[in-house]
Design a protein around this nucleic acid. Structure first.
Length: 1030
RNA sequence: GGGCGAGUAGCUCAGUUGGUUAGAGCGCCACGUUUACACCGUGGAUGUCGGGGGUUCGAGUCCCUCCUCGCCCACCA
């Protein structure tokens, strides 16, 4: 044996090797992509990770898939660019830094001021950007690092300003008063997408408002109900339905329709609703009719506590079937009431300060928090005996996703992007197939969302982000504003296309400046303009990512060559927020879609089916997985698990740092700061450890056993390579004529060609998991389990040694290439070792002198090597071998116990199996004595029927006769049953006449085999029984 | 309330246009260190394909229906 056996360890030492390999790739420029007209481009822009925190397993999957596609295309001869970068993630990042500031220094952002806070966030960004990029490097991502961008860097900033200026000039950016979700903690508006609902315990208060001058017979009070009593201070009306009777009729009809279609279980509930409705007609309708009449007459109510006269109005928003049938209207603090306010021309009174306290419009409650005001309002109303009833009730309360504090609906000035046309263009791109979404079903959500064409609120009252490039001046009159507009547009900047202005009716002038330009900005500010303090929604800059990173607005060679990008790989939760906006911005700015395909991959869930997150404690840091299993295992494991239809469910374990035992993570222990190892009884800490006592314990990594299979596979590959190299001594490349090779060589070459074909097809269709499985099966079940085993005796035979070496080396070489996109490190490491033996791709293909596997070429499918006859032959051989092994196993024969056997089969199979004789002896220590029909059975037979072959081992002295009889009886019983089944099927006239001929034929053949099986089992049993008797 | 998806072995998942006896990995059981690999090898056991109905010669696969779970969107005075 070669001394290589001692030199090459029997495990891949990934801890040290991967770092080195990666560094060498990088130093050698392997990741860099250049404009190269000789090659087709392939481009992926990374979904820029938020600098909020470190990457988790979801990112690991996302980036693994990108790297697979990039490496695959690079090997296929594309100029492959993977554009890396990170996202400033406006609200999210400012929120974590502010939270941290509060925790550590007990300061708010106002204590620091804008400049200092932003400075702090830049520090945070630097720290996490480094960490994130290092995580990507550790995973092996082949990004072109020299192009790394950040959504807040100068290049992106220029793209943002150019875009904003352009949209402003087209009249697509405007300011308006809108009800926004106000985060009183962060003091900013947040979009609907940044709001989550959580059920909290609350109350449902019923109040009554006095009617001013009711006529005789009319009610003196109107009852309303609310879950937020303090907002009554901002009420500007009470509404009642204009035609409560008709509304109830309509509802009743609706319920009746539903009752007809309802399932038994639903019926009960629907019927109950109908009953309630009937009751309500009695109890509430007369009053509501009166109230509607009063409203039309212009009746006023007295709003208690603030003593403001408010109208009773009619509006369809008031649902006669709910509550009292009347509803208080607070246009400035409720989205629906806002709509009512617009319809009924009601005043809108905002009682909130930006910090969540009440303002002067709240009268004597000014200065109180909403919470305190609520108590005070209820107390005061009780004192006035205006409280009718208080119910306990669970309320779905909107919370800010960023600060986790309750949202207050709030009327504020907001900047919007008009979506009508932009959205339509983005929809068209998907409808006509310029952008293909894979899997297709995700296209629906995209289209539905864009189809609403809701204007996009783009302003955020934050300090971290791209500040809106608008300078505003409030004039004293409309005329003055006109004059100001005329004056501004005469500025030299405007002549240079640097400036554009508009009037917000009636008297406010907005000026937008194209590029950052101190002189223009100073000029404006000197003449009384003030820059908008708001920054842009973070998605505004990410929407430009595919073209801004390539240098837009300049017509750079990169933009021309690499844009539109080839594919975008992301997860489904940002299809609307990000993907849709990239499409519309790409179309607006460049005039072309940003990518041709979008692939949506599954999400990674924990063992309970919950999304992983740091706040739950079930998050997994890819680095922990890499430390334990290696980057290749991380990548292969994720690729293997991420299948088409389901999210990846991944049970998670802590690893005890003392004894390395895996401790299952449960919903309980994942929230604890320390855990006692059930095995070694020592304590280790978790991510929650804060106190010195807790952090004193070693930290337990969080990983998942799901990666073991992938780690094992890498090891298998490593050792197969080790075997090949150990046996490559004296290897001298020569040109082989495949047709002259023995069948096992042609078999493995045929299987290889088929595997390449399957892998290509799978990757083409984004079936990454299928690709992984195809290569895995080939490598393990065919190359290792058969070819390598068969090579062992041949390597000892001088006649075959050279050819065997060559085929081994060739197949290994091709396998490494196929696996490289998925497991780049170990394949590169093996490739480098293999290079010692010179170029090994010698089966007639051109030689390739590449120093790096990652830069070498992707295997070609050589269809001349595909030979179904040989594959069939091998299948027969494998089946017979399996039968032999089964008999050996059940008779408890040791590997050294040699046996003889026969195979009863048709002449065709004889031809197939004849050349395989030596391998039965190599792989099952069994000598083939007879092959064909009419063989004499030994006295002590053990038989198995498989694929039309009767494999019979002469057990001689080895046999446990009783066990064998029992076994055969069971088999016979089964076979007889199946014969009956087949016979029934074949005697079914309709089957025979209606099923396709080949299916019927197959059944006949199958029956035939089964009958033979029954026959031979009977013979065998006879013999065994006789032997037992004697 | 609307939409999408899932339910197949103890666990995590495959299962192409309907067609022999439904597969893989892990786990489990038995045996085993024979020329790479115990992160290994060989063999074995384990399934009412969520329930019910239908179409069909034939259904895990197509249709209807019910149940359970997950996600997204909307709404809740």
């Amino acid at each position: 044996m070669s001394d290589l056996a001692e030199k090459i360890p029997n495990r891949f030492e990934f801890q040290t090797a991967c770092r080195e390999i990666y560094q060498q790739w990088e130093e050698d420029g392997c990741f860099e992509a250049k404009v190269n007209p000789d090659r087709p481009p392939f481009t992926i822009v990374i979904p820029p990770p938020n600098v909020t925190g470190a990457l988790h397993l979801g990112h690991a999957l996302n980036n693994t898939l990108q790297d697979i596609r990039v490496r695959w295309h690079r090997m296929r001869g594309f100029e492959a660019l993977w554009m890396p970068g990170t996202d400033h993630a406006g609200i999210a990042t400012q929120a974590v830094v502010e939270r941290r500031l509060k925790e550590v220094e007990n300061k708010t952002r106002h204590d620091l001021g804008r400049e200092q806070l932003v400075e702090r966030i830049w520090q945070w960004k630097a720290e996490y950007e480094t960490r994130i990029l290092n995580q990507l490097r550790s995973m092996g991502c082949s990004c072109d690092w020299k192009r790394t961008r950040f959504t807040l860097d100068e290049i992106c900033a220029r793209a943002v300003r150019t875009t904003f200026f352009d949209l402003f000039g087209k009249g697509l950016i405007f300011r308006g008063k809108r009800l926004v979700n106000w985060d009183t903690y962060l003091q900013t508006a947040v979009s609907d997408d940044e709001v989550f609902h959580e059920e909290v315990k609350g109350h449902f208060w019923h109040f009554k408002y006095p009617v001013i001058a009711p006529k005789a017979g009319e009610p003196t009070h109107v009852t309303i109900a609310t879950t937020r009593p303090e907002t009554m201070l901002a009420d500007t009306a009470v509404a009642v339905h204009p035609d409560p009777s008709a509304a109830l009729d309509a509802l009743e009809q609706q319920l009746k329709d539903k009752l007809v279609a309802a399932s038994a279980k639903e019926k009960e509930a629907v019927q109950e609703q109908l009953d309630q409705l009937a009751t309500r007609r009695q109890t509430h309708l007369p009053l509501l009719l009166t109230l509607a009449e009063m409203a039309r007459r212009g009746t006023k109510l007295m709003l208690p506590l603030v003593n403001r006269e408010i109208p009773l109005v009619v509006d369809r928003w008031a649902k006669p079937e709910l509550g009292s049938g009347c509803v208080k209207i607070t246009p400035a603090h409720d989205a629906n009431d806002y709509e009512v306010g617009l319809r009924c021309s009601l005043p809108m009174i905002n009682i909130l300060n930006t910090d969540g306290t009440l303002n002067a419009d709240a009268g004597k409650y000014a200065g109180l928090s909403m919470k305190k005001a609520r108590v005070a309002v209820v107390e005061d109303l009780e004192a006035l005996e205006l409280v009718v009833e208080i119910e306990d009730r669970n309320i779905e309360l909107a919370h800010s996703d960023r600060s986790k504090t309750p949202i207050e609906p709030f009327l504020a000035d907001q900047w919007f992007v008009k979506m009508e046309q932009l959205a339509q263009n983005a929809m068209d791109a998907v409808i006509d197939g310029r952008v293909k979404i894979i899997p297709e079903r995700y296209g629906k959500g995209y289209l539905d969302w864009l189809g609403e064409k809701r204007d996009w609120p783009v302003g955020r009252q934050l300090w971290w982000g791209h500040q809106i490039p608008i300078w505003t001046k409030a004039c004293d009159s409309a005329a003055e504003a006109e004059a100001e507009l005329a004056r501004v547009t005469l500025l030299p900047a405007d002549a240079a296309g640097q400036l554009t202005a508009s009037i917000e009716a009636p008297d406010i002038v907005h000026v937008c400046i194209r590029d950052e330009h101190d002189v223009h900005e100073a000029q404006l500010e000197a003449s009384g303009y003030v820059r908008q303090a708001d920054v842009l929604d973070t998605w505004f800059s990410s929407a430009l990512w595919p073209h801004s990173t390539l240098g837009w607005p300049d017509a750079t060679p990169e933009l021309k060559y690499f844009y539109p990008t080839s594919t975008l790989i992301t997860s489904r939760d940002i299809i609307t927020l990000w993907v849709a906006r990239m499409v519309l911005m790409g179309l607006n700015n460049v005039g072309e879609v940003p990518f041709k395909e979008v692939f949506i991959h599954p999400k990674i869930l924990d063992g309970y089916g919950e999304t992983m997150s740091k706040s739950k404690g079930n998050g997994v840091d890819p680095i922990d997985v890499i430390d334990k299993f290696g980057p290749d295992a991380l990548r292969f494991g994720l690729t293997w698990l991420a299948t088409e239809t389901q999210d990846v469910r991944m049970p998670v374990q802590f690893e005890c740092p003392h004894c390395e035992v895996a401790v299952n993570q449960t919903k309980q222990n994942r929230e604890r700061p320390t855990i006692e190892c059930p095995s070694c009884k020592q304590t280790f800490s978790t991510q929650w450890a804060k106190s010195p006592a807790d952090t004193a314990h070693k930290k337990g990594a969080v990983t998942s056993e799901r990666f073991e299979a992938a780690r094992n596979f890498c090891n298998k590959l490593w050792n197969a390579a080790r075997f090949v190299m150990i046996n490559l001594e004296g290897f001298a490349p020569q040109t082989l004529d495949v047709q002259q090779l023995p069948l096992e060589d042609r078999w493995i070459l045929s299987r290889l060609a088929t595997t390449i074909e399957r892998t290509n097809a799978a990757l083409d269709g984004y079936h990454h998991s299928e690709a992984a499985r195809a290569v895995y099966d080939f490598a393990w079940d065919e190359f290792c389990s058969y070819y390598v085993e068969m090579a062992k005796p041949r390597l000892q035979d001088p006649e075959y040694r050279a050819a065997t070496q060559q085929v081994l080396a060739h197949v290994l070489d091709q396998l490494l290439r196929l696996l490289h996109p998925m497991i780049p490190f170990i394949t590169e490491a093996i490739w480098q070792e293999l290079a010692v033996f010179g170029p090994v791709r010698t089966l007639g293909g051109q030689r390739e002198e590449q120093p790096w596997l990652m830069r070498s070429s992707w295997p070609e499918v050589d269809s001349k090597l595909q030979d179904p006859r040989i594959e069939n032959q091998f299948a027969k051989f494998a089946a017979a071998l399996g039968a032999l092994r089964e008999i050996r196993s059940r008779q408890n024969l040791g590997p050294k116990d040699e046996v003889t056997f026969t195979v009863g089969c048709d002449p065709e199979t004889v031809k197939l199996l004849e050349p395989m004789k030596p391998f039965f002896s190599a792989l099952a220590n069994a000598t083939l004595l007879g092959l064909g029909t009419g063989l004499t059975q030994p006295d002590m037979p053990a038989s198995i029927s498989v694929e039309g072959m009767e494999v019979t081992v002469d057990l001689g002295k080895f046999i446990d006769v009783a066990a064998e009889i029992a076994r055969n009886e069971k088999l016979l019983e089964n076979a007889v049953k199946q014969v009956a089944g087949k016979q029934a099927k074949l005697s079914n006239e309709s089957f025979v006449s209606r099923a396709p001929a080949d299916v019927v034929d197959k059944e006949r053949q199958s029956l035939n085999e089964l009958q033979q099986q029954v026959e031979s089992l009977t013979t065998t049993l006879d013999k065994l029984r006789k032997a037992l008797g004697s």
